[in-house]
């Protein structure tokens, strides 16, 4: 009878074909193959980002100038510190995950519970941070003008060589122009909310203040954005057709619109992965508490979601490099 029990225990680990390929379980291998295909999806995203960047290599936005916020430090230029912190949070939650897997190998239920909880908290903090990054990115900081060709004109105060917000120098003009709504027109059409400031107001303010000049998208030899002389700027500002404040999928005050598009798609896709990872982790967490895996005799499920969670961390390492560092 003892022999029969033994074979039964072994058979539970075998696949349908009566063997155990790579001496790994079915679920684990399928998780690995999912990760490989998902890695290729992210590769597609990141490489197309590289494509657009090399295509516009001399006018791409400089990440240090875009992501400058840190919570509770208003008006202080802190490029990258916050993303670096996010990276540490995610790496740390990866460590607690791998510790949970390790505790699972030792069938230590209370430790698995504790480490899973830490992992969930880390993941939640990360998703929250990303939402905050998005908020700042969408809201924008200085505002800019957009030209007919879709280029962005930003404004610099020559007195202190710092960027200046268009709201700070635009001079108000009383205008009859109102947001068109579908219920007041001849046609059942409406338009998006108009920016608070019009191009004319920015132009008027710009011409009135001789200390201002325009910063174009072009990157000069020393790796900085090109500043126009005052005369060039006065000539250039006539090309402006619209005011841009913040960023969305169509307009982007930081420069090339593709930059905003890729930012939303890549960090959004990654954030979605983190979010679903947190949800899966919560499910597994409750299963651990309920003792599901204790009854099953192994904590392999924790190992499988662990693989997914580490993969999310792995992708972030690349997103961090290509969006914020390079």
């Amino acid at each position: 009878m003892e022999v029969t029990t033994n074979t039964q225990v072994n058979e539970r680990e075998l696949w349908g074909g009566g063997a155990k390929p790579f001496s790994a379980s079915y679920g684990k291998i399928m998780m690995w193959f999912f990760i490989v295909s998902d890695a290729l999806t992210f590769t597609g995203f990141l490489v197309s980002y590289g494509f657009s960047r090399f295509k516009n290599i001399n006018s791409w936005p400089i990440a240090d100038e875009v992501f400058t916020h840190f919570p509770f430090l208003h008006g202080i230029d802190a490029p990258m510190y916050y993303v670096a912190l996010m990276t540490f949070i995610l790496i740390f939650s990866s460590v607690t995950m791998v510790l949970a897997v390790d505790a699972g190998h030792h069938m230590n239920k209370s430790k698995v519970t504790f480490y899973m909880l830490l992992t969930i908290i880390g993941g939640a903090i990360f998703v929250g941070s990303q939402a905050w990054e998005w908020k700042n990115f969408i809201k924008g900081e200085y505002g800019a003008l957009e030209t007919k060709g879709g280029q962005i004109l930003q404004f610099v105060n020559l007195e202190n060589d710092k960027r200046i917000s268009i709201q700070d120098f635009a001079i108000g003009i009383n205008s009859e122009r109102k947001t068109h709504k579908s219920n007041i027109g001849l046609w059942y059409q409406n338009e998006k909310t108009l920016p608070k400031i019009t191009v004319e107001e920015v132009k008027k303010g710009f011409l009135a203040n001789p200390n201002l000049t325009i910063r174009t998208e072009q990157i000069s030899e020393n790796g900085q954005k090109t500043l126009l002389s005052r005369d060039e700027a006065i000539y250039k500002i006539d090309d402006a057709t619209g005011v841009v404040e913040g960023a969305n999928l169509i307009h982007n005050e930081y420069g090339n619109r593709l930059f905003a598009d890729f930012f939303f798609f890549i960090t959004g896709f990654h954030g979605f992965h983190v979010f679903s990872g947190v949800v899966i982790n919560i499910i597994i967490f409750f299963n651990v508490i309920l003792g599901t895996y204790e009854k099953r005799g192994h904590y392999e499920m924790v190992e499988k979601v662990g693989l997914y969670w580490h993969f999310v961390d792995l992708v972030w390492v690349f997103v961090f490099t290509f969006f914020y560092l390079v």
Binding site: S48, G50, F51, F54, K55, N56, I57, N58
Partner: peptide, 9 residues
């Protein structure tokens, strides 16, 4: 893709 991007540039 990078080679193509460089060409388009």
């Amino acid at each position: 893709l990078i080679l193509e991007a460089d060409y388009i540039f």
